[in-house]
């Protein structure tokens, strides 16, 4: 613990970012009403109340993705994580939450911890999650039942692990984009952005 307070290593950074994704994805699923709110449980993290799914199947799916993502973050082979929200009936992409990850690959060679306190990183993460919560006010209502998918952009030379497969980018046609805050662990920098389908009235 003392070491994390002083600085941050690649391993710690990967863990922090993966943790952020876990809470971030849960927050999006809750805030956008993809799943019924009663299937979520409240936890306190980053000094704020967050909703985390209590559904065992969904939990399992998310931990699978996040643990794999953590590995890739550690290897610095991941470029983006995208949460795609699609309409169940038409399979049309309605929303796209994109997290661009910039890895400082030099950290792979030198194991010298970076100078950035956990507190400031968590402050930055908190503001990103707050923004995710605040997006409910401007994002269009998802009127139809929706499903979500998680896309991970990795380096080209990465060996596709078992259970994973390649996918298309699932871009929204005629989208409106809103950039959210970013945060950095000084090893991984995460830029967040949400794109949503433009409604006719807008």
């Amino acid at each position: 613990m003392t070491s994390t307070l002083k600085g941050i290593t690649l391993k710690g950074s990967a863990e922090l970012v993966a943790e952020f994704f876990s809470f971030g994805i849960n927050s999006i699923l809750y805030q956008r009403g993809i799943y019924p709110p009663e299937t979520f449980a409240r936890v306190t993290h980053y000094d704020m109340n967050l909703q985390v799914t209590a559904d065992p199947k969904l939990k399992n799916y998310l931990t699978n993705v996040v643990s794999q993502l953590k590995e890739w973050l550690f290897e610095c082979t991941v470029q983006k994580l995208v949460l795609v929200i699609t309409c169940l009936e038409t399979n049309e992409v309605l929303e796209r939450w994109q997290f661009d990850i910039e890895c400082d690959k030099s950290a792979k060679e030198s194991s010298v911890p970076r100078e950035k306190s956990l507190k400031t990183i968590q402050d930055e993460i908190r503001s990103v999650i707050r923004q995710i919560t605040a997006t409910v006010t401007f994002l269009p209502l998802l009127e139809t039942p929706c499903a979500f998918d998680l896309l991970v952009y990795t380096d080209k030379d990465l060996v596709v692990p078992e259970k994973w497969e390649e996918s298309g980018p699932q871009i929204i046609s005629q989208s409106e984009e809103v950039r959210l805050r970013s945060f950095t662990t000084s090893i991984h920098k995460v830029n967040s952005m949400v794109a949503y389908k433009r409604t006719d009235s807008a």
């Binding site: 799943y35 019924p36 199947k57 998802l142 499903a147 991970v152 952009y153 080209k156 996918s167």
Partner: peptide, 23 residues
């Protein structure tokens, strides 16, 4: 530069008849 991966199989869908309470 990149390839897009996703975990095989979709995550489970919301229960049937569920309506977004944000409505």
């Amino acid at each position: 530069d990149a390839k897009i991966l996703h975990l095989r199989g979709k995550p489970l869908n919301a229960p049937e008849g569920y309506q977004n309470n944000l409505k």
